[in-house]
Design a protein around this nucleic acid. Structure first.
Lengths: 205, 205
DNA sequence: AGAACCAACTACAAAAACTATAGCAGAGGG
DNA sequence: CCCTCTGCTATAGTTTTTGTAGTTGGTTCT
């Protein structure tokens, strides 16, 4: 990704925020007024951003609204493929794709599930949506890492005294008991997508 | 729903088809050329359709593209709430809401699951997507009605000699054996939606 | 005949968007 | 120091779309 000049960055961020809020692109004319720059200047910035692959901007001739679109990477929910080892922040740039959903708070991400620790509730291949936060109640489904190993999906039961139980839904897996300082909660379960709906909604990057 | 004049119907259907194909609204000017009518005539038809609640059409002043939107009922996938008793076609007008998905063939619908016959694979409250067709392979998950009773979700195993087994995923339910003529397959499973994603995507009607 | 509606048109006005051109400031090289 | 490039801004003029108003002809119902 090429670097942006200060004005280009401002235009890009404002555009992204606008899209996240409203789910639609503003008109160039309105947007220029809002930014306090001349229409022609804004157009040049957008062309620069298009050259640098930050967005899609295509003029369609005089009088016709230009095609203006942000790549899903900027606004969507990242879907992390397989099992991200290591910190989540490092895995996000390698996202398998993005779910084009607007109106979600920051810190939402999704995992493509590998393994059957939560079977049959959550299947291998499902795309599960998470909030990047700590669990509030006992018994929530969480994406946890224990002592730096891979991410796993488990019920997280609070045992008190800084200890938690990691309980699989699949009875073939044992329940693990760990201290709070030995584990790391990457996110809390919020919903899932299965089957053809995944292909329908996921924009691969 | 008020009746439409022939030309209004034509405009409405073309617009709906365009949206289903492309996922976006055409520009009035292009659309008028495509239909072979004058821009002003098209505008009058759209205003009539707006009056009759077939779509949303709001001018935003000269030179600005008008807001033009089809209600989800026209383009989305109907989500049938609860358990539709009786034929599916009768239940569709009473849909709980619509999933705004484009690019799907006709005959796609969704059910809000009630009951736990497929637990834990499919939970109570999940929204399951179906194709309105007959099963092709043995063992597919289908929405079936046996002798006019309510719709149930079951694995459908072909036993031969015109007989099928309706097998629940939940072992608490018995497997039923029925003749082909005593049952009716409303749809075949294609995917599902669970948790917050349902509220995020479903547009209630 | 008159009213109501449908379907289409002409003519003009306003706004958005495109093109071309140019001014100004700062950075870097010769 | 001068030249050039880049980033940012602006002015002027053109094209297209969209909106508004008013008109014409046809059908249907009263």
């Amino acid at each position: 990704m090429e670097d942006l000049s200060p004005m280009q960055r401002k235009v890009y961020e404002r555009l992204r925020d606008h899209f996240r809020r409203t789910g639609a692109m503003p008109e160039l004319s309105d947007f220029a007024r809002e930014l306090g720059v001349h229409y022609v200047s804004l157009k040049q910035h957008l062309e620069a951003l298009h050259r640098k692959d930050y967005l899609v901007f295509e003029s369609r001739g005089r009088g016709r609204s230009p095609r203006l679109a942000l790549p899903a990477v900027a606004t969507g929910v990242p879907v992390l493929g397989g099992i991200p080892a290591g910190p989540l922040s490092e895995a996000i740039p390698d996202a398998e794709g993005y779910l084009p959903l607007t109106g979600l708070q920051d810190g939402t991400f999704a995992l493509r599930v590998q393994g059957d620790s939560m079977a049959d509730l959550i299947q291998n291949g499902d795309v599960v949506l998470f909030s990047k936060r700590q669990p509030q109640r006992s018994g929530e489904i969480c994406a946890v890492r224990v002592e730096g190993s891979d991410v796993t999906l488990k019920y997280l039961d609070r045992l008190g005294a800084g200890r938690f139980a990691l309980r699989a839904h699949n009875p073939a897996y044992p329940t693990l008991e760990v201290a709070a300082e030995d584990m790391l909660v990457d996110g809390v379960y919020r919903g899932l997508l299965r089957g053809e709906l995944v292909d329908l909604l996921l924009e691969r990057s």
